[in-house]
Design a protein around this nucleic acid. Structure first.
Length: 544
DNA sequence: TTGCTTAGCGCC
DNA sequence: AAAGGGCGCTAAGCAA
């Protein structure tokens, strides 16, 4: 397969062929060039600096190498062999978003970097890695994720502002003028003020509210919902309702609609690799925490459907695979892993299974969770052993890694930060640093599983992206991405595909096939299943 | 005015 | 019911 590197040269683009030939094309000729060379792996500094313009010109890229993301993976990976030093400019390079001044800035820091040298360096590091295949897969998956992210921002998630508006109006009354509360919230605020005897209270201020609650005789130290729920007092019911609605309005109310859901699409900005574990982050619009409450507004276009798919219990399944724990994999043969554990007689109830597994993944030590973990350890020694070892490594200050080789950060400044985060007064005898070490151990324990889960999801997404493209080619013959079945949303272990209705059943098949591919890519022939819940729906809210 | 932290809560 | 890991976002509140 051809690898062709693109490098910006003022208003032109230098095209570096694999054989060393370099040609130049004007920047506005790039879409035609890329379109004409299907199958090439395009190598570039940063997908966010190249791909949006290509997509806007109607050109889809099949595969790429994103040097910025790959450099970030290699920088941390314990499987990356030492090689020539990396230009620190790569670590400082920030992704850009549409409308970002950096896009049009003549002084884009990306232009000061040498992508040819960096590509050569990365190839050498990879070639020398003792885990070349896994690390190579990770780099390919990470780069493919960058393409999928740009495409999802380009196509967006279909979003019906009228449905969203009716939903808000039904809950809080008509949209008020700027700076005012809608009627239902104003009424609830009034009830709260009466119940507390504070006519001027602003319930949006936690500090003021806390003092008012204490003055009214409630022995509370904070104003969290689950704290308030414990008390029988006339203020509790209206205050909880106020907080629930005020939260919705602040996070996903009318101003969210104005800002993020224009033109019938919600276009979040995804940040692949934005979380240390390898999960994506997002920027703007709160894409990764769209409340269930507003999901009815995500409605497919006329004649189209949403295919919503999520993996049940991704992380324990990933743990079974990466630890080659056949007993846990047996439980995972069931569509409900927790039910599988009950059937195997490991625990008595599904609730015990769940709390035990979460305790093992997160490092729970107290309560029911702490009591369950030893029982799981007897039954699943390899799986529990793997996360326990990751926790011990973290406590020692060692680096841990995911299955494909993403490395955890070294506990340096972060270690001290966590100390401060705990907010505890320093104690004599080093107990404070013990606490920090255990906290870091919980982080590394979760890192290996959350990170490998993210790798599975990336492989799933990458394979599905190609399957959907081919499906559109074969069945529709449409040229443009947005006219074919396409990824519309991605959230850790869930995808939403927007598809012409007549292809929905085929899309469901491809979604499952891609999950099977991801399992094989990560775990080979080890028998661990990744069953999906797949729903073909008009609205996102109708799934699950 | 801008920029930062904190409290609180939404998602996985 | 909360705990244990990872995030982003908003309003409030404060500092500069």
């Amino acid at each position: 397969m051809d690898r062709v590197l693109l490098r910006r040269r003022g208003d032109a683009v230098a095209v570096h062929e694999g054989d060393g030939t370099v040609t130049e094309v004007p920047a506005d000729g790039l879409p035609a060039l890329v379109r004409a060379r299907a199958g090439v792996r395009w190598v570039w500094d940063d997908t966010t600096r190249w791909y949006p313009a290509l997509l806007a010109a109607g050109v889809r890229v099949e595969r790429c190498t994103d040097l910025r993301l790959c450099a970030a993976v290699l920088r941390r990976s314990p499987h990356a062999a030492r090689g020539p030093a990396e230009d620190p400019g790569w670590a400082a390079l920030e992704p850009v978003t549409a409308g970002d001044p950096a896009l049009f800035d003549l002084a884009d820091p990306a232009d000061a970097l040498d992508p040819v040298a960096e590509d050569r360096r990365q190839q050498a590091v990879l070639a020398a890695s003792p885990q070349r295949a896994r690390l190579g897969l990770l780099l390919a998956a990470e780069s493919s994720g960058a393409l999928a992210a740009a495409e999802m921002t380009h196509t967006g998630l279909p979003w019906r502002a009228d449905v969203h508006d009716r939903l808000l109006t039904g809950l809080v009354g008509p949209r008020p003028a700027a700076g005012l509360r809608p009627p239902v919230l104003e009424a609830l605020a009034g009830e709260v003020r009466v119940a507390l005897g504070t006519p001027d209270l602003n319930p949006d201020s936690p500090a003021v509210l806390l003092r008012a609650l204490q003055t009214a005789g409630l022995p509370v130290e904070d104003t969290r919902s689950w704290t308030l729920e414990r008390f029988e007092h006339p203020v509790v019911a209206p205050l909880l309702e106020y907080k629930r609605l005020a939260r919705l309005l602040a996070a996903n109310g009318w101003s969210w609609l104005d800002t993020w859901a224009r033109g019938g699409r919600f276009r979040p900005v995804y940040l692949p690799g934005g979380v240390v574990t390898g999960r994506w982050a997002s920027s703007g619009g709160g894409a990764l925490s769209v409340p269930v409450q507003v999901r009815p507004a995500a409605v497919a276009d006329d004649g189209w459907c949403l295919v919503v798919a999520d993996v049940a219990q991704l992380e324990p399944r990933v743990l079974a695979g990466m630890s080659a724990d056949t007993a846990l994999a047996d439980a995972a043969r069931s569509a409900d892993l927790y039910a599988g554990m009950v059937d195997a007689g490991v625990v008595a109830t599904r609730a015990e299974a769940k709390v035990g597994v979460l305790g093992a993944l997160y490092g729970g030590t107290r309560g029911e969770s702490g009591r369950m973990v030893p029982r799981l350890a007897r039954r699943y020694p390899r799986a529990i052993g793997l996360v326990e070892e990751a926790a011990r490594a973290g406590e020692r200050g060692a680096v841990v890694s995911t299955l494909l080789g993403r490395g955890s950060p070294v506990p340096g400044a972060a270690w001290a930060e966590r100390d401060a985060d705990l907010g505890e007064a320093p104690e004599p005898g080093g107990r404070d640093s013990d606490r920090a070490r255990r906290a870091w151990g919980r982080f590394t324990r979760n890192f290996v599983v959350q990170g490998t889960g993210a790798e599975w999801a990336l492989c799933w997404l990458a394979d599905l992206r190609n399957r959907l493209w081919r499906l559109g080619e074969e069945r529709l013959g449409e040229e443009r991405l947005e006219e074919r079945p396409h990824l519309a949303f991605f959230l850790h272990d869930e995808v939403v595909v927007h598809t012409p209705a007549e292809l929905a059943a085929d899309v469901a098949t491809e979604v499952r096939a891609a999950a099977a591919t991801a399992g094989r890519l990560l775990f080979g022939t080890f028998p661990v299943d990744f069953p999906l819940d797949v729903a073909v729906v008009r609205s996102w809210a109708d799934a699950g």
